[in-house]
């Protein structure tokens, strides 16, 4: 086409792309109204939405224990923690909206199974020790994943993650403290902690995703500096951090291959069952159906509140 307008658009496109690449190469942040490749935008929307959904669904496994917490102190802590998860979800939905994603559409995508959330929240919380282990291991793994995201290339996502990470540190410490209290209790309490560790250890390692060789989108996300470390690097970092903490608690991590490797300067450990991870992600985990059903019910039961608030605002002329 010789039409000048079209020619101008192409020029603008090339200029936008050059500026985007320059921004990424200089390790500066991309901001909402900057030109960005559609694939970059789509990758971020998918990742941020999945992250937001994880926070919201993640309220359920622990939320189930709020009414059954063994003391007022534990109840208040757990309540605050679950409220934080809601907050994290909202920070992240806000970040996704800066990319042009529609909030109501994101909720629909979750409920209809078109968008995923972290596989870890499809496992049940059978005892109160699970609350401690989720804080210690699951939130510990989340911190490993999330700290590098504070420097991710998309500004609003990075800024949301800075707030999330500050709050996660409370989550992990309360979990460890809970377990530390239990392991100094009765034999039955120690057994309860060990049982929870046995059940959560492998699903926690799966949180880092498939091994690098089977993670096809990783390279592109690394090139865009959305992601800064590979799945296997982060998994290793988490194991190295956690083993001494487990020793201090006096619990055994259920992996016969786990041992210090002085040559590598890291712990060697066994591979999680990635076939199980694929099954749980595909919807066939112990609690997938229940988690989504519960979220759908909360959304439907809240519909009249949303409508009433809109009507009230409309009547007051806002």
């Amino acid at each position: 086409m010789v039409d000048g307008r079209r020619h101008g658009d192409d020029e603008e496109f090339a200029e936008g792309r050059a500026r985007f690449e320059e921004t990424i190469a200089a390790d500066r942040r991309v901001e909402p109204r900057d030109w960005m490749p559609e694939a970059y935008r789509a990758t971020l929307v998918r990742q941020i939405a999945q992250h937001a959904h994880s926070e919201i669904i993640g309220m359920q496994p622990e939320g189930e224990w709020i009414t059954r917490a063994p003391s007022l102190r534990r109840k208040a802590i757990l309540w605050a923690k679950v409220q934080d998860e809601a907050g994290h979800g909202l920070y992240l939905y806000g970040a996704a909206e800066t990319l042009g994603a529609d909030r109501a559409e994101l909720t629909r995508a979750l409920l209809e199974g078109r968008q995923k959330y972290s596989s870890i929240f499809n496992y049940p919380t059978l005892t109160f020790a699970d609350v401690g282990v989720i804080g210690w291991l699951v939130d510990g793994a989340a911190i490993c994943n999330q700290v590098p995201l504070c420097r991710t290339s998309y500004g609003p996502y990075a800024r949301a993650m800075v707030r999330v990470c500050k709050e996660e540190s409370f989550h992990q410490r309360q979990g460890f403290e809970l377990l530390w209290t239990m392991v100094r209790g009765t034999e039955a309490q120690r057994a309860m902690v060990q049982d929870a560790v046995d059940r959560w250890w492998w699903p926690t390692l799966m949180m880092f995703g498939p091994p690098d060789a089977a993670s096809p989108n990783s390279a592109r996300s690394m090139a865009w500096r959305v992601k800064r470390h590979s799945n296997d690097e982060l998994r290793q970092r988490f194991v190295d951090m956690t083993v001494p903490q487990a020793e201090r608690l006096g619990v055994t991590l259920p992996d016969e291959r786990l041992r210090w490797n002085p040559e590598r300067g890291h712990y060697d450990f066994g591979a999680p069952d990635f076939a199980e991870l694929a099954r749980v992600i595909a919807g066939d985990g112990p609690c997938n159906a229940e988690r989504v059903r519960r979220r759908a019910a909360a959304h439907e039961e809240g519909a009249w509140v949303r409508a009433a608030a809109r009507a009230h605002a409309a009547r007051r002329g806002e």
Partner: peptide, 23 residues
């Protein structure tokens, strides 16, 4: 610090308090 959804400005203020000033 970020954004949020609310039916009106008054609700936006209380939501902002709950979301952005928990600490």
């Amino acid at each position: 610090v970020g954004s949020l959804r609310a039916a009106d400005a008054r609700m936006a203020l209380t939501h902002a308090r709950d979301l952005y000033t928990r600490r």
